[in-house]
Design a protein around this nucleic acid. Structure first.
Lengths: 206, 206
DNA sequence: ATCATAAGATACGCACGAGTATCTTATGAC
DNA sequence: GTCATAAGATACTCGTGCGTATCTTATGAT
């Protein structure tokens, strides 16, 4: 339902309150209608304001789009549970949670934007990150090596990042959350064996 | 350049010649402009014809879209080189070749269509396939077991289909062909070890 | 030669959204 | 209380495409 002011309280929003309402509206429209549905008209209506208000702040659609995404882009915490398996499961479940999943699915939601601008999802990620970051799974593996849980041998990035790539693959194919059993299977029957670990001591994944 | 007839040869196309020209034009527009760019106006212009000609054959945009995809949907041959590794490399390289890759990337090109219709890429695949098919990698693994190259033990679908999922993941992320070294790495450092094989006897991948 | 069919061209009314102009008036600084 | 600023509303021109109506005429069957 529109946040348009009711007639009995003709209060005009200003500053951060107004801009937050617009950015929130833009995010909702983007997620529900995709990039092509993200129009000034639709966002203004959803935010209960009017087009000149948006044009004054974001003269181009790309400006509005990037401001919207930047507001919702937050890196995930990297877990430290004491066990590589538990670290990986915790992290992948966080990736699969609604907020993080939605950001991954931007790869698809913004396909027309990438084509139109000749940019890529990686370009967008680089633009939004303050600095280069170690991939989270590389950090988890490094900690496991420190704990003596894993042998300190060279491993390809492909193998280290494997569970994240597989979870992301399933998300991109289904556009939905990945079942928890799938996350457990990926870690237990694919990743840990490849790393030279067995899930022998694994407890129930819940 | 449009296939519109030159004035010196005012020949009107009919039947298959006309329909093939339209479907070819539709495919080009779809691949270049995405689903939203696939308009009757754009396709008619590209095909060198006019909108009534399209509307007479395909009254709805979805009709035109599905006819276009059906014309280009062809299953890949499953290789039989005598070696699981070589079978997998050959198959994945075919997947990575332009025609097959383009069909995989429809997952992204048609994102707005799927959202609008509440359907999925899997629905589309089911609709286009004459019958349920064994996933190609399952066939390759079955043949390796028959040759005695692999132990005959139960294996999860996840593990069997892994290299295809990883190649597809990289394609969806980059919207481009996957480097050949990546395909070799996926087979040699991820898949074969998981299956209990070593690429020891592996020759150069070319 | 005749003729039914349909290709191709063009125009039309309509819907939708971009982007801007214009207006009223709420609002917060002073 | 005054006043500059901008929120919100509304209207406008323009561009684009939908889907259909109308027309001319090429074409292949007869």
């Amino acid at each position: 339902m529109s946040q348009r002011r009711s007639e009995t309280t003709p209060t005009r929003r200003r500053g951060a309150a107004l801009e937050n309402a617009i950015i929130d509206a833009a995010w909702e429209v983007l997620i529900e209608q995709g990039y092509n549905g993200l129009t000034f008209e639709a966002v203004a209506a959803r935010a209960g304001t009017s087009k000149p208000v948006l044009y004054r702040r974001w003269p181009r659609r790309e400006d509005l789009l990037l401001a919207t995404i930047a507001r919702h882009w937050r890196p995930l915490d990297i877990p430290d549970t004491g066990s590589l398996r538990q670290d990986a499961l915790t992290f992948l479940r966080a990736v699969n949670a609604e907020r993080a999943r939605t950001l991954i699915l931007l790869r698809i939601q913004l396909a027309d934007y990438f084509r139109e601008t000749g940019t890529t999802f990686s370009d967008l990620r680089r633009r939004l990150r303050s600095a280069d970051q170690t991939p989270p799974l590389a950090t988890l593996v490094a900690r496991a090596i420190e704990r003596g849980e894993l042998a300190d041998v060279p491993r390809s990035e492909r193998v280290v990042n494997l569970p994240f790539d597989l979870v992301r693959h399933d998300m991109l194919m289904s556009m939905e959350a990945v079942p928890d059993e799938t996350i457990v299977e990926i870690v237990d029957t694919v990743w840990l064996p490849l790393l030279g670990l067995s899930p022998h001591g694994a407890q129930a994944g819940h």
